[in-house]
Amino acid sequence: MATARSFTVLPGFGLSLGYTLVYLSVIVLIPISAVFIYTAQLSFSEFWSVVTAPRVMASYKLSFGASLIAAAINAVFGLLLAWALVRYSFTGKKIVDALIDLPFALPTAVAGIALTALYAPNGWLGQYIEGVLGIKVAFAPLGVLVALVFIGLPFVVRTVQPILEDMESEFEEAAASLGASRWQTFRFVVLPILLPALLTGFALAFARAVGEYGSVIFIAGNIPMVSEITPLMIITKLEQYDYTGATAIAVVMLLVSFVLLLVINGLQAWTAKRTGRDR
Results as ranks from 00 to 15, higher is better:
residue 244 T to L: 09
residue 252 V to Y: 11
residue 43 S to V: 03
residue 218 F to P: 02
residue 28 V to I: 14
residue 75 A to D: 02
residue 39 T to E: 02
residue 191 L to G: 05
residue 104 F to R: 07
residue 195 L to I: 05
residue 258 F to D: 01
residue 96 V to E: 08
residue 5 R to Y: 04
residue 146 V to W: 05
residue 123 G to C: 05
residue 257 S to K: 01
residue 253 M to P: 04
residue 262 L to Q: 07
residue 61 K to Q: 14
residue 169 S to I: 08
residue 274 R to S: 09
residue 206 F to Q: 08
residue 72 A to H: 07
residue 255 L to E: 03
residue 7 F to S: 12
residue 234 I to S: 10
residue 103 P to Q: 08
residue 45 S to R: 12
residue 157 V to Y: 13
residue 265 N to S: 14
residue 84 A to I: 02
residue 248 A to S: 15
residue 72 A to D: 01
residue 251 V to S: 14
residue 195 L to T: 15
residue 278 D to E: 15
residue 233 M to D: 09
residue 173 E to P: 00
residue 92 G to N: 09
residue 210 V to N: 06
residue 231 P to A: 10
residue 192 P to D: 13
residue 45 S to M: 13
residue 30 I to N: 00
residue 273 K to Q: 12
residue 263 V to S: 04
residue 22 V to H: 01
residue 182 R to Y: 04
residue 93 K to F: 05
residue 27 I to Q: 00
residue 163 I to P: 00
residue 268 Q to G: 01
residue 184 Q to C: 00
residue 154 P to H: 08
residue 50 V to P: 08
residue 81 L to I: 15
residue 119 Y to H: 10
residue 138 A to E: 12
residue 245 G to F: 03
residue 77 F to T: 06
residue 234 I to Q: 10
residue 260 L to V: 15
residue 148 L to Y: 13
residue 255 L to F: 12
